[in-house]
């Protein structure tokens, strides 16, 4: 089988890799690029442990071929923290003990971030449906939902604060 050369962007960085035609994006991330944060729980798109974003859209990387990453912008859990600063969702998951074993956590964080990017003020029901594609067997989801609620609140107030500062700065100018 001859390899396919793929040029893509992962977490903002340009990446070039060679993969076989039947390899999934998840296989490529884990086995070729050493990005093992996305997990394989089912390989049928049912568990969400392999969640990534493709051009900003939440996707099960086990359902996408590696070759399909050509020219796309892939986001994985490894790109979520900025330097030593955790994303508010990451901090809130820890604070609320929203993980027990932690295998589903990367997928949940990617899915939750994708949800909050689109809907910064979701209701509990919207959170529950927004995360319904991710399975967790340890927590019963209670603390995950609370962590997402709390992170959303913090992100909204940070945004409001920065908007206020910007307006104030504009006024001064």
């Amino acid at each position: 089988m001859s390899g396919i050369t793929v040029n893509t962007k992962i977490n903002g960085d340009p990446v070039e890799f060679i993969c076989e035609a039947d390899e999934t994006l998840l296989d490529v991330l884990r086995n070729r690029l050493g990005l093992t944060g996305a997990k394989e729980g089912c390989s049928t798109g049912d568990c969400g442990a392999c969640s990534v974003t493709v051009d900003g859209r939440l996707t099960c990387s086990c359902l996408v071929l590696g070759a399909e990453a050509e020219g796309r912008d892939i986001g994985t859990i490894e790109g979520m923290a900025q330097g030593e600063h955790l994303h508010p969702l990451q901090s809130k998951f820890l604070e609320h003990a929203a993980l027990q074993c932690g295998i589903c956590t990367p997928g949940f964080l990617v899915a939750a971030k994708s949800l909050l990017d689109k809907n910064p003020d979701p209701t509990e029901t919207e959170i529950r449906f927004g995360l319904a594609g991710n399975l967790c067997r340890c927590t019963g989801y209670d603390k995950i939902v609370r962590a997402v609620q709390d992170a959303a609140k913090e992100m909204r107030s940070a945004k409001a604060k920065s908007a206020k500062t910007k307006t104030a700065a504009k006024k001064r100018a």
């Binding site: 996305a38 490894e78 993980l99 956590t105």
Partner: peptide, 23 residues
């Protein structure tokens, strides 16, 4: 009390190594 777990950062950043993550 309710302190943060010691393995927490690894688990929320994707660094934690599970069964299939070693080679």
């Amino acid at each position: 009390t309710r302190p943060l777990r010691p393995d927490g950062i690894d688990k929320v950043t994707g660094r934690a190594k599970f069964g299939a993550d070693a080679s």
